[in-house]
């Protein structure tokens, strides 16, 4: 026993050391910068400034929530239909859903400029029949579209995984007992798919709330979310302390959102994210 516990310590040491240095210590640094000023002295200035960004936080959550909800509404029927197609088709489709994730996130976002721009694909097509150009780009709608487009696969995959694993006999039993189609979905499929919904929401909501690239490219400066504000503190305004304070609030806020979600769905936390494989 003694020897095996020594071996275990040797096995665990590198990882625990790494996690302490590069996961825990950086978070402590965020706290440190949030509570100091540019000279390194203790100060609550940055924390006091957080209140000025309350509106930005609310706006970010709203954008994230809307994009997540739209993704869920689009992805749910897709996953349901897909889970009831032929096995070969399912395999191919899952590959096709995952493929866009291997393409650069930047290019995927950028490609929408080509489509939505003033002389883009849609507007030049509309122009031929005498409409427009419509202001499709540089507004909130374009940002939401960018979010939904970029993160839709993260919603589809967990939903599909759980629907494909669902016991068909339960659905058949409900039908035998006189359930209509909608009733089957409402009373059997939906409750069983809740863990998939929860991990889908997590995987879409978190990147949406904290994004800055999508808003900058598709929002054209019209939509300023918390990610943009934080990014600006580090890249242009050089106010690391305020940036750290805002990051800290963003982190806590998202943890609370996830906590609430987990509380209502009671999903197994070790499964989260594993569905991607």
């Amino acid at each position: 026993m003694k020897r095996s516990s020594l071996a275990q310590k040797i096995i665990n040491a590198p990882y625990i050391l790494w996690a302490a240095l590069f996961v825990i210590a950086p978070l402590i640094m965020v706290l440190y910068y949030a509570l100091t000023d540019s000279t390194g002295a203790f100060s609550l200035d940055s924390v006091k400034q957080i209140g000025d960004y309350g509106g930005t936080f609310i706006l970010s959550i709203s954008y994230g929530a809307v994009a997540t909800l739209i993704s869920l509404v689009i992805a749910y029927p897709f996953a349901y239909f897909l889970a009831h197609t032929k096995a070969n088709f399912q395999r191919m489709s899952v590959m096709l859903v995952m493929l866009p994730m291997w393409m650069s996130f930047l290019i995927r976002t950028y490609s929408w400029i080509t489509i939505l721009g003033e002389s883009g694909v849609i507007n030049s097509a509309l122009g031929k029949i005498g409409i427009g150009p419509l202001p499709l780009l540089n507004n909130g709608g374009a940002v939401i579209l960018g979010m939904v487009y970029n993160f839709l696969p993260y919603m589809i995959l967990p939903l599909y995984t759980i629907m494909a694993k669902m016991d068909v006999r339960l659905i058949e039993a409900a039908q035998d007992l006189g359930c209509g189609k909608l009733q089957v979905i409402r009373k059997v499929v939906f409750p069983l798919s809740v863990p998939g919904i929860a991990s889908g929401i997590t995987m879409v909501f978190v990147p949406c709330v904290s994004t800055f690239y999508i808003t900058q490219k598709l929002g054209g400066g019209q939509v300023n979310l918390i990610g943009d504000v934080i990014e600006a503190q580090f890249q242009t305004a050089n106010n690391y302390n305020l940036g750290a304070a805002l990051s800290l609030v963003l982190m806590v806020m998202i943890l609370i959102c996830l906590g609430v979600l987990n509380y209502f769905t009671d999903s197994d936390d070790e499964v989260n994210g594993g569905v991607l494989v």
């Binding site: 996961v23 950086p26 978190v206 934080i230 750290a244 990051s247 982190m251 998202i254 989260n272 994210g273």
Partner: peptide, 18 residues
């Protein structure tokens, strides 16, 4: 799980600060 649950921007910034 922290780096996976945390928004990427926070992970990036926390490491940069370190």
């Amino acid at each position: 799980n922290i780096p996976m649950m945390n928004p990427e921007i926070v992970t990036g910034i926390s490491m940069m600060l370190l």
